[in-house]
Design a protein around this nucleic acid. Structure first.
Lengths: 199, 199
DNA sequence: CGTCGCATTGATATCGCTCAAATCCGGTGG
DNA sequence: CCACCGGATTTGAGCGATATCAATGCGACG
């Protein structure tokens, strides 16, 4: 989702990681499972999802390569959402106990962990801000403005536009139309899956 | 916002807190200011806000008594939003340096801090989930279901319904109507500012 | 070559936003 | 005590943006 949440693996952890290979659609854990592990995405993508009353999927978070996930579950007894691989993915699995122990024993690790959580928190709040905007083009603009690289706020969409639509709290039809309109009106430029602001 | 984010003040901090008294509308810091402090709400309420392009206020977070705020700014150079007192408030101000030092030197404090950030993160993601719901009554239902106390998911609204509407990403008119409709349809009960699910 | 899912566009319905107005309520000053 | 004021609350009417339903093209992949 946001590259600002990416970190290296603290060196103290490397030894305890167990490699996990997932196919698209594989579930890594279910909501309600007793927490046992924290994960790191090496490649691919993992979605943390819950389901609305109508059964529609709500993406709480999407972990991309270089990011941990389920790190907020360290101090709860159960996972509070499902984790599902969105594509073929390679993960590292770290037992929660090891993390907890490192937090106690390794000051450098604890500091890295605090920084990691703080980045995730800022990222989540940015998303709250985006979802509070009341029309589609503002959400797209906000995405480019807050996540984009360079002077033109360039963003290369990871995954499908359908996924992006769900992340923006829109239907995919609305996102397609909004992008088309914004491009026609000269607000954004679009080259395949790369978007940027004009000027 | 969520009582799950409330904590006591770690005992290690108490000495370094500076008491701050605010009137409604007072600004504690502005977006872009160099970060210098983390705050704790003793009484009142503080809103972290940014502004949309149309100038409308977007509430990123509302800190209620017993909660820290600006804790995610510990490792950034500048605040990324405005902090404004929503009502007469009493705060404690802690220099960032003291917190950073404690994170290094005090393991118990570091652990409490990690738990605090994790709670805030879960809270923010719950709000993302809520804002991803596409209609007003589902958002209200989600609020009760995820924040409510007891079997009936009882919530006593802090502040005005207008404030709640903004937190839910709705206009106040829509919230009033939605509450009225849900009450008429027997989905919720309402007694003043207390809401609960029926059955 | 058939199938499946994404991308795209059209038509329509619905829900929430906007503008507007009336009421209520607490506080304030005469 | 009462008139007044500002903000919250509530309800109405109409509009517009987005959801929904539908159809088609297209590329990947077996």
């Amino acid at each position: 989702m946001s590259s600002s949440t990416q970190v290296g693996i603290p060196s103290a952890l490397i030894a305890s990681g167990k490699r996990l290979v997932c196919q698209p659609g594989d579930t890594i854990f279910w909501a309600g499972d007793a927490t046992h592990s924290v994960y790191f995405v090496v490649s691919g993508a993992v979605r943390l999802v819950r389901y609305g009353r109508a059964g529609e999927e709500v993406i709480l978070h999407e972990a991309r390569p270089g990011a941990f996930f389920a790190e907020a579950s360290l101090d709860s007894a159960h996972y509070h959402c499902d984790a599902m691989a969105g594509e073929a993915s390679e993960l590292l699995q770290f037992p929660s106990g090891v993390i907890r122990q490192l937090l106690q024993s390794d000051r450098a690790f604890a500091q890295e962990w605090v920084a990691l959580l703080a980045r995730q928190l800022r990222s989540a709040r940015t998303r709250v801000e985006r979802l509070s905007l009341k029309n589609a083009s503002e959400r797209v603009w906000h995405l480019l403005y807050s996540e984009g690289r360079g002077a033109r706020c360039e963003v290369t969409v990871q995954g499908t536009l359908k996924d992006l639509a769900r992340e923006l709290g829109l239907t995919h039809e609305t996102l397609y139309r909004t992008l088309a309109t914004m491009a026609r009106d000269g607000l954004i430029e679009r080259q395949g899956s790369t978007l940027r602001l004009t000027a």
